[in-house]
Every structure is written in structure tokens, then in C-alpha cells.
């Protein structure tokens, strides 16, 4: 057993770096989201402001920061202020355990994946108290929908991740990546099914279209964040984009072999190899994010009964059968 040296300074520095990364990432993703949507749906706006529309994000950010924070008179003020923070902070903490490379990982916990999931659970709480404290019926409906959706989708999400954990026999994210090596878990039939289920549920967990019912603007104005202005909304927004990264990073480390190329394990030492590994990891994660954005602008929003039917009647049975089949396979053949 190795006792980890107290590396509080490292964690503090890493947390600051993560916050910077989260902000940069959100700015870039907003821009990407605009560009992709513009290309998919022929929206000319995002081409106008600055070179390649790059200034649009900066202006948006400035607008958000400059706006007045308005708290509704009937709102529960303390909870109202707490909710955006609660939706923004846990994803950043969760990012600290993501293995971007062999060395570029702030804290490799033995229960890494569980740690991330437990922090992700706080996101529902944030949405719930945001919707409740706003004293607005649209917000409340958004929050109620979000909870129904998140609780339902958490089951297939956990089952699909459990399949991967069962296959590799560890909860440690670094070990999960190393256990796959070049032979990604997604190449096995169980891994493939689990990956598809995970990705669908992951999109539902981040509340993104086609699963964005908690903030369906055509019915609920803006859902749970209707009453939030300025950076209050901004923090929810940052939280959503951070959650996107988290979902993609988990998918990358559990199903897509982390920083390894297909059928090639990258074990080289030194900064250059590490850099290559980090770039491969980020390439995979951002490709998945691109797919998410692509889906958002391609598919219409599902109806609520369709959403829950998909979960309870398709995803949960399939993930259960998949988990059982993987368990039988491991017992009979050996993983």
C-alpha cells in the first residue's frame, strides 16, 4: 500500500487550472455550438461578429457579466443564490479525477468513477432548489421535470457504467484506462451496447436537446433558470458545459480506451508522449461533445412520455440484460 503524500498545494493549483480550463472550454464550446448550429440549420448570424464569429462569445460573456443580478421579490433569496453555485462547483471537483493522461491527472482515487457520480448527483439538487426558490411556476415545472428525468436516467447510466466496471474489475479511472489498453471496451459487444446506452443517458443527464425538457423554451420559457439573470444564469450555463466535458471524459476513459489509440497502447515515457496522450484523450472527448452538439441541432425535442418510455421500456431492460450477459460471459469465458 502506498500512502499518498499530502499534496494540498498541487490540488489547489490544479483546481485553479481546472477553473480556468472550465471557463475557456465553455467559451470555446459556445462558439463551436454556434458554428455547428449555423452550419446545420443555416443560421447566418454567428458568421458576422469578428473573424469567424469569434468575437460573439466574448461579447456574450461580457454581456452576462455586466448584467444586473435580479432576484425576484418572492424568491427564497439564500437558496436562490446557492443554486447556481451548487450547479457549477461539483463538476469542477469531479474533473480533478479525470485521467487526461498517465500523469496529467490531479488525484487518482480508487473509487474515481463513484466519486464523479456522487458529485453529479448534486446537479439535480441544484436544479431542484433553483426551480423551487424562484417562486415561478415555469421554474417549478422545469425542476420537477428535471428530477423525474434525472432519477429515471440515472438507473441505465449506472448500469451501463457498472458493466464497464465489472468487465475491468476496478473503479479507479486510471486503472480502467490501463485495463483496456489498445483493446477498447467499446470493441466488445457488451461494451458497445453499454456505450450507446451510456451516451444517450449522459445526454439526458446534462439536460441537452433532444432531452432538454427541464428548460423547454417553447413551453416553460426557460424552465428552472427562468428567473436567473446575468452570471446567475451564466453559472448554470458553465455548469452545463462542464457536465458535457465530464460525460464525454467518462465515456472516453471507460469505453474508448482513454488516451490509447485503437489496438495501440501508448506507454512511452517523457513529456512528449504525455502530450500525445493528452491530445488523444481530448480529441476523443471533444469528438463526443461534437456529436452531442450535432444531435442537439438535428433532433427535435422529445415529448415527456416518450422520454420516460425510452428510459423505462428500452434503456433499463437493455442495460440490465447487457449487465447480466457480461457477468455470465466473465464467469464462463473470463473477461
Amino acid at each position: 500500500m502506498q500512502i499518498q503524500s499530502p499534496n494540498i498545494l498541487l490540488i489547489v493549483v490544479a483546481a485553479v487550472v481546472m477553473v480556468l480550463y472550465v471557463f475557456t472550454n465553455s467559451a470555446v464550446l459556445v462558439w463551436v455550438e454556434r458554428k455547428v448550429s449555423a452550419h446545420i440549420q443555416r443560421r447566418p448570424g454567428p458568421f458576422e461578429v469578428g473573424p469567424f464569429g469569434l468575437l460573439q462569445t466574448a461579447i456574450d460573456g461580457l454581456k452576462l457579466m455586466a448584467k444586473q443580478l435580479i432576484i425576484p421579490a418572492k424568491a427564497d433569496k439564500r437558496i436562490f443564490m446557492l443554486a447556481p453555485v451548487l450547479s457549477f462547483v461539483p463538476p469542477i471537483a469531479a474533473l480533478l479525477t479525470v485521467p487526461f493522461g498517465k500523469v496529467v491527472q490531479v488525484q487518482n482515487l480508487d473509487i474515481g468513477i463513484l466519486f464523479i457520480l456522487s458529485l453529479a448527483a448534486l446537479n439535480v439538487l441544484a436544479i431542484l432548489i433553483a426551480g423551487w426558490s424562484s417562486a415561478n411556476k415555469y421554474s417549478l415545472f422545469g425542476a420537477v421535470r428535471s428530477v423525474a428525468q434525472n432519477i429515471a436516467y440515472e438507473i441505465p447510466l449506472l448500469l451501463s457504467l457498472l458493466t464497464a466496471v465489472l468487465w475491468m474489475g476496478t473503479l479507479n479511472l486510471g486503472e480502467l484506462v490501463d485495463a483496456q489498453g489498445g483493446f477498447w471496451f467499446v470493441f466488445t459487444p457488451f461494451g458497445f451496447i453499454a456505450f450507446v446506452i451510456y451516451f444517450v443517458t449522459g445526454m439526458a443527464e446534462t439536460n441537452r436537446a433532444p432531452f432538454d425538457l427541464p428548460e423547454a423554451e417553447s413551453e416553460l420559457t426557460a424552465g428552472f433558470h427562468t428567473e436567473y439573470s446575468g452570471m446567475g444564469f451564466g453559472l448554470f450555463f458553465l455548469g452545463e458545459y462542464t457536465n458535457m466535458i465530464l460525460v464525454s471524459a467518462i465515456a472516453t476513459s471507460l469505453f474508448l480506451g482513454g488516451y490509447n489509440l485503437p489496438f495501440i497502447t501508448l506507454n512511452g515515457e517523457g513529456i512528449l508522449w504525455e502530450l500525445i496522450r493528452v491530445l488523444i484523450f481530448l480529441a476523443k472527448a471533444y469528438f463526443l461533445i461534437f456529436v452531442m452538439i450535432w444531435m442537439r441541432w438535428t433532433f427535435p425535442r422529445v415529448r415527456f412520455d416518450q422520454l420516460l418510455n425510452l428510459c423505462w421500456k428500452v434503456l433499463i431492460p437493455f442495460s440490465l440484460v447487457n449487465l447480466a450477459a457480461a457477468a455470465i460471459w466473465i464467469k464462463a469465458v473470463g473477461g
Binding site: L109, D110, I111, L114, F115, L117, S118, L119, A121, L122, V124, L125, L128, I129, W132, L140, A143, V144, V147, I151, E154
Partner: peptide, 25 residues
Amino acid sequence: YFIASMQILIYVGAVSISMVFAVML
């Protein structure tokens, strides 16, 4: 850390949210 994670995942993530949900409704 396992028990700590489970505590948050189950009690905060599931039980308490169900309670808030029930209170809200």
C-alpha cells in the same frame, strides 16, 4: 472514500432529492 461517496450518492443524491421533491409537490 467509498462510504463517503455512497453517502453522497444515496442520501444526498437520491433520498434527500426525493424528500425535496415530495415537499415541493
